[in-house]
């Protein structure tokens, strides 16, 4: 191979030197990434008093008693992680399903059919990808107030049907992988267009759907700006809106409780990430934007 051709020792020395630098920098960044989470985890098992002595202390004498105490501390006030999880789960799951299904459908409409306004529609989708969310906010909030719809979860579910970014990715994927011959032969077999989409095209798009679903789920789960304005009842708050409470005066200086509250919101994400990370990072995910 070409690599074997390089045998001069000076080059090899350079090579190891570079590798050492790469590893040192990477390890520093890995520590930087993990440090906050490690502190958060260890301090969830420590009492506020212990934390005030030193944040960096490791194990407490009564870790589980402290954990129970911290848990009582957070749930006795306004922070109810279970309610937050329930609402976040409903919003993220339903909106993700709508998002990937209808984005696939729209992308299929653009790539499989010839229609007059197709190019205009396609350009419009690319254009609205650039529109910042803020510019919809004030108008959206006013309409919601006028119709008396605040604290309704569907406000964050239905709009997912029109996600220009996902349509864009799905279209890129379809253009590379959809062969019209399969569609034609299904037509000859007498399948209707809608059935062809559901039974042939959707299974074909599985990799793209999986990756877009992950990104959609995370984005929806972490959304703060609009829910903060529109979900004001405790029963309707999502996790990020709940998290905001940890910063307020009610938990002032209750460090053990704050760390535990943060940990509770992070844990499900880390568990899911542990299973899906390879998939996200391998680059399959973003293959859509290849040059």
């Amino acid at each position: 191979m070409a690599d074997n051709a390089i045998k001069e020792s000076s080059i090899k020395k350079n090579e190891t030197g570079l590798k050492v630098v790469i590893y040192i920098v990477s390890v520093i960044f890995a520590i930087m990434t993990l440090f906050p989470f490690v502190i958060m985890f260890t301090n969830s098992f420590r009492s506020t008093f212990e934390i005030q002595q030193s944040t960096l202390g490791m194990v407490s004498a009564h870790p589980f008693q402290n954990l129970a105490k911290n848990w009582n501390e957070i749930t006795n006030k306004e922070f109810h992680p279970l309610i937050g999880f329930k609402n976040s789960f409903i919003i993220s799951t339903l909106s993700t399903i709508l998002n990937v299904y209808f984005s696939s459908l729209t992308a299929y409409a653009i790539s499989a059919y010839e229609w007059k306004l197709r190019d205009a529609f396609n350009n419009m989708i690319v254009g609205i990808m650039m529109v910042p969310g803020t510019v919809t906010t004030i108008g959206f909030v006013q309409i919601v107030y006028k119709l008396g719809l605040s604290n309704k979860l569907f406000l964050f579910i239905i709009p997912a049907i029109a996600s220009p970014m996902t349509v864009f990715f799905m279209r890129q994927y379809l253009q590379a992988s959809l062969s019209m011959e399969i569609v034609q032969s299904a037509r000859i077999d007498g399948a209707g267009e809608f059935r062809i989409f559901n039974q042939i095209v959707v299974p074909l798009m599985k990799p793209a759907i999986a990756t877009q679903a992950i990104f959609g789920y995370v984005a929806s789960w972490n959304n703060l700006f609009m829910p903060l304005i529109l979900l004001t009842e405790t029963e309707k708050k999502t996790i990020p809106v709940m998290v905001k409470l940890l910063n307020g005066d009610i938990y002032r200086r209750e460090y053990g409780a704050i760390y535990l509250g943060l940990l509770v919101t992070v844990l499900p994400l880390i568990v899911v990430y542990a299973f899906l990370s390879r998939f996200i990072v391998e680059g399959v995910a973003l293959g859509g934007v290849k040059s």
Binding site: Y108, A109, I110, W115, L117, V131, I138, G139, P159, P164
Partner: peptide
């Protein structure tokens, strides 16, 4: 079918994005 399959996107976009933008 091109038009038909784009209808959900277009209707949602008009209601939840374009209308609020114009209103803003």
């Amino acid at each position: 079918y091109g038009y038909l399959f784009s209808i959900p996107f277009i209707l949602t976009f008009l209601t939840f994005t374009l209308y609020p933008i114009l209103f803003t």
